[in-house]
Design a protein around this nucleic acid. Structure first.
Lengths: 343, 343
DNA sequence: GTGAAAGCGCTAACAA
DNA sequence: TTGTTAGCGCTTTCAC
């Protein structure tokens, strides 16, 4: 690799002039600049990020902290990462993928202590997240994909659960349904104070209330089996339910099986919505499910942009909510006029 | 951030002694070492990766080059990334996520030119991959997840297609099937000389031949619709086919629908296998599909380890093939004794 | 408009 | 066993 000295020698100028010419830090005579640029091009010169970073205390590297896949990392999470990486790249930054192990705060301390990264992007943010306390205290710039209960002036990009729930409710109400059930994420996720589980629950209830349709949300199935069971209990307790929104992919699988087992059909006997699942997953189902697809890549990109904005000293905190996109599949239809048949 | 000088002053020694004590580069008196360690601890000292890298020409950062999601990035690809990040972390390295845009080689030139990374991990390697030529020529250490047609002495971790195909064939043959069909990846992927498409095709043919069972593989459906159509054509042309292995998730969806449309059932009328799909995807189907799950995280981890091995100057090239894991679901069963009913 | 020199935090000769 | 010193490649005063 050729260094700035090589360029300077070849262009017969001082290194400081090369630096100035290449960065536009101070005026350089047009002719000198030309010689320098040519020399740099001929040598294939690339300024060393390390040296530059050492000097300027800025590396243009961002760390994306991600929890080691628990039950499994979804497509959604992946898209946060790729979205963020993409946005970072566009702005001349790099994204470091940092797995969090047992002790997230330790991990943070480690990664920020190295002086390697300018800022941190947090994923899977809990309502109360100890990592934010640490970062705030340590004065490390960061932004969140998701948000804590009280984000204060921290930058974040999160799903607009209110708009998402409203869209879902409008969709089913528009089809003529009068009673909607909502299967939230598993009890585990609630116990972990997982924001999406809690916010979606609250917002669906509110949206149903506002729309004046019936609403049930006592279920939190986290697997196919639990999904099937929850569905059976739902039908037993609320036979007038004609539309169901499910947050957990696997639970949806169980619901579909249970529907078929009763001799019912989707969408004739039940309108089924997948909430916060990518359309790619929805396509795996047959019939193709209507889904509220989270704008994952956009959220990741926004998170990265916000962080960079902060690093480059922008203004007020950027806090953005993006609604899920309603992708209508073949699992939604008006409710059947008469009684449902089957067992 | 406190620097090595601060530690040196506090411990009343020279910086070089601190460096030596902390890195074990040269002998340090036990007592001195203690003082240094204590001082470092008290100051919360973390050596700067930048400074160290500038000096040692080694940053302990690896770049994972990933293609910008075309049709869509699967879980599988994600797991390469997380597996690699995990392994890197364990060995004290960091993983940079580098999206490749239009011009992969340009991207490589850029990322390697910065002096930021010690080596590169390549994903989605084609049979003829221009990136390897560049890296070889540039003398940049790298390893591949996947492999070119002729990997020479390049490190790689790839799927063992022969073992995978053998396991699949043994599974269906063991159930008593006499004729297996194989739906390869889409024509697009073949056109792109995508290794897995080509290798899996060849190895399934070979495994079927070796096992002495019938084999058909003229189909390359890349979507649900194409999958359904391919299935219809298959049944028309080879009505004696009782087992089917499918590589594309979406095509499998179409097959399942087509099977149902004929009034057939899985697994009674058709044994269906998903090849190279994660079990997590297989669970989305009902019945749960038997799958040959790629060891994605392991491959990613291996790729990272190999690269690190190379960087730390190990011996001969590491080239590893890992078989897919056969996860038996509810879609495989012995062939039906009599005729199949339905249209 | 340009050059010389200091220094970012660290490692590695070389001396002592 | 420890200290002194010279860089790694760059940016940034400060002179000229």
């Amino acid at each position: 690799m050729s260094s700035i000295r090589d360029v300077a020698e070849r262009a017969r100028v001082a290194v400081s002039t090369v630096s100035a010419a290449l960065n536009g830090t101070r005026p350089v005579a047009a002719d000198t600049r030309r010689r320098i640029e040519q020399a740099a091009a001929e040598l294939g010169y690339r300024p060393s990020l390390l040296a530059r970073g050492l000097q300027s205390k800025r590396t243009r590297i961002l760390a994306l902290l991600y929890p080691t896949p628990r039950s499994g990392f979804g497509l959604t999470e992946m898209q946060f990462a790729t979205g963020a990486a993409e946005a970072a790249r566009e702005l001349g930054y790099h994204l470091l993928l940092s797995p969090e192990h047992a002790e997230p705060v330790e991990e943070l301390r480690h990664i920020t202590g190295l002086g390697l990264v300018d800022g941190v992007l947090l994923m899977e943010v809990g309502l109360d997240d100890e990592r934010t306390d640490f970062l705030l205290e340590a004065g490390v710039p960061f932004s969140m994909i998701g948000r804590t209960r009280d984000p204060g002036s921290i930058d974040y990009a999160d799903i607009d659960f209110a708009a998402t729930a409203a869209a879902a409710v409008a969709h089913v109400a528009g089809l003529g349904h009068r009673k909607l059930a909502f299967f939230n994420l598993s009890a585990d996720r609630h116990a972990a104070r997982y924001g999406p589980a809690i916010r979606a629950g609250a917002e669906f209830a509110e949206a149903a209330r506002a729309a004046g349709i019936g609403y049930v949300d006592d279920f939190r199935p986290g697997s196919a089996d639990e999904g099937g069971q929850a569905f059976e209990r739902l039908v037993a307790a609320h036979p007038d339910t004609t539309a169901l929104a499910v947050m957990d992919d696997h639970a949806a699988v169980g619901v579909i099986a249970a529907v078929a087992a009763r001799g019912w059909r989707i969408p004739e006997d039940l309108t089924l919505l997948l909430v916060l699942s990518s359309a790619r997953v929805a396509e795996m189902f047959h019939p193709r499910l209507t889904t509220l697809e989270p704008p994952s890549a956009e959220l990741g990109g926004l998170g990265a942009r916000m962080l960079i904005g902060r690093l480059e000293g922008d203004g007020p905190p950027a806090q953005r909510l993006l609604p899920c996109r309603l992708v209508v599949g073949d699992s939604s239809a008006p409710p059947r006029a008469g009684e449902r048949t089957g067992s």
